[in-house]
């Protein structure tokens, strides 16, 4: 840990970043707050409505449904991706030619443009031309993600697992690699079972990276937009309309500035709370990591 020297002139080095981000963040945020308490019929003519949009939003079924859908989606994603990521990371080779092959092929989905991820799965799942859809259909399984909400959900979830499990794998793998061989040898001499090696050696070492993985996955899945937008467009009906999709529909599609602004603010507050928890947890773990937690 570097002992930092106090120097107020450092502000000048940060100033360019501060100005650019403030331009893109503060002005829009102020505008959203302004819109959220007014109504408009266009042409920049606004009427004061006070807290009405917030009241309407909080009591609207549409918002509740989108919020619950979002929570359910993020919950399912975490429940699948985290255990799966741990299992794969444990099974990955530690040395030899297998390591770069695994790393490169696993990183590939992370670096595909999100709308192309959507396109890939849109094609892959189609009954007429997609490998997955066609195979399922020839097995006699009724699967059509444009008609059936459950199939649409399954498609979006499998797509997200495909897209992001690698992140969990790579993080856990980095955590596992930091365990010295001596630990395993000691466990072998003690005759420890596979489970106790995992429970008492590997899991504690992965704690920090696992926490990062969980928080990152939760927050990123909480603002998912592009992939489901491309695959299902939020449908069939509203069954895959997550928070961001609903918000963009309202703001850009219907141009309902007031309600969209109110929803933006509530959404933003939830994210702000999550980021604060994330940052606090991370920095506290960072302070404790000197006594053993590995990078």
């Amino acid at each position: 840990m570097i002992v930092k020297q106090t120097n107020q002139k450092a502000w000048f080095m940060v100033l360019p970043v501060f100005l650019v981000v403030a331009f893109s963040a503060v002005i829009p945020l102020m505008t959203v707050v302004n819109y959220s308490v007014q109504d408009t019929f266009g042409n920049n003519v606004f009427f004061w409505v006070g807290m009405d949009w917030f009241k309407e939003l909080i009591h609207s079924d549409r918002f509740h449904a989108a919020f619950l859908r979002q929570l359910l989606f993020s919950g399912i994603i975490l429940a699948i991706e985290v255990p799966l990521g741990i299992v794969i990371a444990l099974a990955m080779p530690r040395k030899g030619w297998g390591v770069p092959v695994c790393l490169i092929s696993m990183a590939l989905p992370l670096l595909i443009p999100w709308n192309v991820v959507g396109t890939i799965w849109q094609i892959f799942g189609r009954v007429d031309i997609g490998l997955l859809g066609h195979s399922l259909a020839s097995l006699g399984i009724d699967y059509n993600y444009t008609q059936d909400p459950i199939a649409a959900w399954l498609t979006v979830i499998v797509m997200d697992v495909w897209h992001w499990t690698s992140l969990v794998v790579l993080l856990c793998y980095a955590g596992l690699c930091s365990i010295p061989d001596a630990y395993y040898q000691a466990a072998k001499i003690d005759g420890a079972s596979r489970w106790s090696v995992f429970r008492y050696i590997q899991l504690p070492k992965m704690q920090r990276v696992l926490l990062i993985a969980i928080l990152l996955r939760f927050m990123d899945s909480f603002m998912i937009y592009t992939e489901p937008f491309v695959i299902t467009g939020g449908g069939p009906g509203n069954s895959t309309t997550f928070m961001s999709i609903d918000l963009v529909k309202m703001a850009v599609g219907q141009f309902d500035l007031g309600p969209a602004a109110a929803m933006s603010l509530v959404y933003f507050l939830v994210i702000l709370l999550l980021s604060w928890v994330f940052y606090t947890v991370m920095s506290n773990i960072g302070e404790n990591s000197s006594n053993g937690g590995g990078r």
Partner: peptide
């Protein structure tokens, strides 16, 4: 900057 639609209460808030 008309489009920002400032009002007295929100200005006071900020």
């Amino acid at each position: 900057f008309d489009w920002m639609a400032w009002t007295a209460p929100t200005a006071a808030f900020f």
